[in-house]
Amino acid sequence: MKGEPLISVQKLTKHFPFRKGWIFSRKAGAVRAVDGISFDIFKGEILGVVGESGCGKSTAGRVILCLEPPTSGKVILDGRNITRLDRASIRKLRPRMQMIFQDSYASLNPRHCIGSIIGEPLRIHTRNTRQQIRTRVMELLDLVGLNPNHYNRFPHEFSGGQRQRINIARALSLNPRFLVCDEPISALDVSIQAQVINLFQDLQKELGLTYLFIAHDLSMVQHISDRVAVMYLGKIMELTTRERLFANPLHPYTQSLISAIPIPDPEKERKRVRILLNDEVPSPANPPDGCVFNTRCPIAGPQCRLLEPESRMIFPDHVVVCHKADRNNGSLITDSTAPL
C-alpha cells in the first residue's frame, strides 16, 4: 500500500460487561461492541468505516484514541503499542490524535466564548502565552472558514455547520496528525454537509492529515475515503479500496448495504433491484454463532451457522470475511443492483 502504517489495529476487542438482578447482582454477559478487528491506517489516507448503528464504530474510534482501554488487542502508533499506557503518557499522546463528534453542540461549553473553547487544548497542553494562543486561535478560525472577529461569540450564536467548524478548529489546535471523525456531518443539512466535507478534504491536503472517518451515509463515505471498512456486530466484514468496494463488493452484507443506498437519480432508482435483508441486527450481547451475519444473510449455508469465517485476502487490497465470497462472486450484485 502507500508507505507505512501510521496506526496498526490488531485483534482489538472491547466488551462491556453487564449484570442481571439487583441484590444478587452477578456477571451475566457482555456486549461485544468491538470483537476482534484488525486493520492498518496509512499515513495521509482517509479510512472510512461504515455499518449500521450499534455495530461498534464509535467504540472502535474511542479505543483507538485511548479514550477507553480495550478488553484485548493492541493499537500501534508509529511502531509503539499505545494500549495500556498510564495517564501521563496518554496525555502526551493527546496532541497527536483528536476526535470530532456528531453532536456539535454537546461538545461545546455553552458558557465559554468560541475563542476560549478553541484555545483550551493549547492552555492545557502547551506553555504558550495568552497572546500566542490568541494569535493561533485567530489563525484556526480563518483556517476553518470562520470570521476571526467572532472570537468572543458564544456557541449558541452559530448554526450547526458553523459549530462543527468550531469543533474542527479546536481539534486542530495542537497540530494533530490523526483525526477520528465520528459521524461529523450526520446532524447537518445537505447544503451544509457539502461545506464541511470540502473543509475536511482541504485540511487533509493542506496539513497532510490522516483520518478515520466514521459514517452511516455510504455515499459520503465513498466520496471522501481512500479505503473503506464495513463493520457488522463488532467485526469487520470487508475492507478494500473505495473503488473496489463500490464496483465489486464481495461480502453479501456489503452488497445489500450498497443496494439499499438511495440514489438521487430517478432513472437509476427505477432500474435497480434492492437486496432486502430480513429482520434487524441481532443484539451484540448475544451474537449468532458461526458467521455473525448468518441470520440475515441471503446466501448462508450450513457452514455459516457452524463456523466463524476467517479473514481472507481475495485480491491484493481486498479482504473479506465470508465463507462463500470468492473472486468472481457477484452472487447478489447484478447490473440492476449496482449503483453505477
Partner: peptide
C-alpha cells in the same frame, strides 16, 4: 450539486451552498 455522485469515484469537489 451538493450531493456526492454515487458510483462516480474520483476526486471532485462537492458544490457547497454558502451561507445559511
Amino acid at each position: 450539486g451538493a450531493l456526492p455522485k454515487i458510483g462516480q469515484a474520483g476526486n471532485y469537489r462537492l458544490e457547497s451552498i454558502d451561507g445559511t
